[in-house]
Design a protein around this nucleic acid. Sequence first.
DNA 1: GTGGTCTAGACCACG
DNA 2: GTGGTCTAGACCACC
Lengths: 132, 132, 132, 132
Amino acid sequence: MPIRFNISPGSQSPIYRQVIDQARLAIATGKAAPGDPLPSVRALAEELVVNPNTIAKAYAQLSSEGLIESHPGKGVFVAQKRQVYTKAERARRIDNALEAFLQEALCLGLTPDEARKLFESKLSQLTPADKP
Amino acid sequence: MPIRFNISPGSQSPIYRQVIDQARLAIATGKAAPGDPLPSVRALAEELVVNPNTIAKAYAQLSSEGLIESHPGKGVFVAQKRQVYTKAERARRIDNALEAFLQEALCLGLTPDEARKLFESKLSQLTPADKP
Amino acid sequence: MPIRFNISPGSQSPIYRQVIDQARLAIATGKAAPGDPLPSVRALAEELVVNPNTIAKAYAQLSSEGLIESHPGKGVFVAQKRQVYTKAERARRIDNALEAFLQEALCLGLTPDEARKLFESKLSQLTPADKP
Amino acid sequence: MPIRFNISPGSQSPIYRQVIDQARLAIATGKAAPGDPLPSVRALAEELVVNPNTIAKAYAQLSSEGLIESHPGKGVFVAQKRQVYTKAERARRIDNALEAFLQEALCLGLTPDEARKLFESKLSQLTPADKP
DNA sequence: GTGGTCTAGACCACG
DNA sequence: GTGGTCTAGACCACC
């Protein structure tokens, strides 16, 4: 299933980040399988009404991470899944992100139970299509 | 107990953010109590080998969030706890942080169950003395 | 309608405060509507003959108050209105400002009646187009 | 009636400012009449548990404004009331303070009516002892 | 000594 | 071009 992108220009994260994130998420959750095609840089740029440079930059980063592969003349495709970060690096990144969340939550007065509820709610919201 | 800061200059998040995050965490978890002094701008800048302005910026933001109070000529202190943001605003901020974490975690291949375990582990690590 | 800034370098309040105050007033009175662009940091700095950092600082604070949104690479815009502070926090801030005014007014010999008149006059001057 | 000072060390405004403001307010509202004595610098410093320099500075400014007079060897007294600012200067200062208050109030979502109520309430709170 | 403000100028990320 | 971060160093207000 080809990846569907939709960006919100008013979001806080820059456009190229949104593209990267959505691609990574689709690949990580299995919505996009190895070999699936991605829209071309210029097609996606036109569809999202953004600068082609922005898309190119996002694709370049995804490519450098080994998540997608560009075959000149044919198009861009989801690569064979493989680890790009070492185990330690993964753990470090995840721990950072988790700590940032809990720090924000506790700092703003959330109780552990409320944090738990939010967490479960968001988790189920993000993974319903994992194995449809 | 005075807050201990340590920054990693090579990190992705800017120095002033690291200072903010560490202070917020210490305050949120109760490691720093209202009235406790923070290191002076100049002292911390020297200790971390960064520009005093960088520390001042971090302190200014913490102050605007109502977490610390600066008394010119005296120093900077942890403030009395008070709710500054509306429920909606808090929800907005917490949701952002949570989404960032889950996005990162799922991208890096964590299963929902693994995420859950990490979450619980971190939560209990951060709130041991919550209600002693 | 774009916000017009003008500062008095000899004033008691710092430049960045003057910028903040004028922007807040323009937004509060509806002279600047959500989506309206603000002058770029560099452009305004040049116009007012001050350092760009000074403008950036003012914009950063307005942004933290949720009044404006900055989109790197695009510019700065008036944000959608939203309540950011709790009732208590708003009351705290408003009370401070009110006390400062009355303190000043009474100190300078204004009678309560004169203060009332001035207040009403300023109020109607600031809210002509409130409900057009 | 001699002026009673009481400062709150945790306040936002510096101590010397609080002393100045309270003296000005007492004089402006008539609570302290021309000729009334003020506590000596060192007595007040001891009473308020602050640095004598702080009090001396406040008295110096009040003195330079013509509100109090120091008679070496005798003490410090409220001066004969007289205008120290020109009419234009007074109007300008008052207008600034009023605009600051209304800007804050409107910006935080207060309706004109709510602002009016707050204003009246604060006004009556500050002037009950005007003519007791 | 403390923090607050401002300037000058650098480098990076974003579109 | 835009805004964001950081540095270096100045001056002021406060205690």
